[in-house]
Simulated scan of single mutants.
Amino acid sequence: MYYIEDYIRTLIQIYQYVLIAYVLLSWLPSARESFIGEMLGKLCEPYLSVFRRFIPPIGGMIDISPIIALIALRFVGEGIVAVLRFFIR
Rank of each mutant, 00 (worst) to 15 (best):
G60P: 02
T10R: 07
Y2M: 09
S30D: 14
R9W: 10
V76T: 13
I58F: 12
T10V: 04
I14T: 09
A69F: 09
G59W: 00
S34I: 07
I58Q: 06
L70R: 05
R74V: 06
M61Y: 11
S65P: 04
M39K: 14
S65L: 08
P56G: 06
L24K: 07
P46G: 07
A72I: 10
I4S: 04
L24A: 13
Y3K: 11
R32G: 02
L73C: 05
Y47C: 11
D6V: 12
S30C: 07
Q13S: 15
D6S: 14
F75E: 01
Q16A: 12
A69K: 09
D6E: 11
R52F: 11
V23G: 01
Y22T: 12
G59V: 03
L48W: 05
T10P: 00
I62T: 00
A31Q: 06
Y22P: 12
S34P: 04
R53W: 07
G59I: 01
F54C: 13
V23R: 00
I58R: 10
P66H: 09
F75S: 08
L43V: 13
Y17Q: 03
S26F: 00
E33P: 00
I58L: 15
G41L: 11
Y2A: 05
R74S: 06
L73Y: 01
I71A: 09
L28E: 01
E45L: 14
L11T: 10
P66R: 10
V76Y: 10
Y2P: 00
M1Q: 00
Q16D: 02
P66L: 10
F35I: 13
S65W: 01
R53G: 07
K42G: 12
F54Q: 10
W27L: 08
A31E: 03
S30P: 02
I36V: 15
I36P: 00
I55C: 08
E5D: 08
L70F: 10
G41R: 09
R52G: 11
I14Q: 03
W27Q: 01
I71M: 03
G59E: 00
S49G: 13
I8S: 01
P56V: 12
Y3L: 11
K42S: 08
R74F: 09
L25N: 00
G60S: 03
S34C: 08
L24Y: 05
L19C: 14
I20N: 04
R9C: 11
D63T: 01
E38V: 10
G37F: 01
I12A: 12
Y17V: 06
I36S: 05
P46S: 07
F35A: 15
E45F: 12
L70T: 08
I14K: 08
I58A: 12
E33M: 09
G41I: 09
V50E: 07
Y2Q: 09
I20W: 00
L40F: 04
G37P: 05
P56M: 05
F51P: 13
K42I: 11
I36L: 14
R9S: 15
L73R: 04
Y22D: 08
V23K: 04
Y3C: 04
L28Q: 05
S26A: 12
L48M: 10
V18H: 04
L24M: 13
D6I: 11
Y22G: 12
Y17R: 05
L11K: 12
P57L: 06
R9T: 12
R32W: 03
I12N: 04
M39S: 13
I67P: 01
I8D: 00
Y15H: 10
W27C: 03
P29D: 13
K42E: 06
L70D: 00
E33K: 14
I12F: 09
M61R: 15
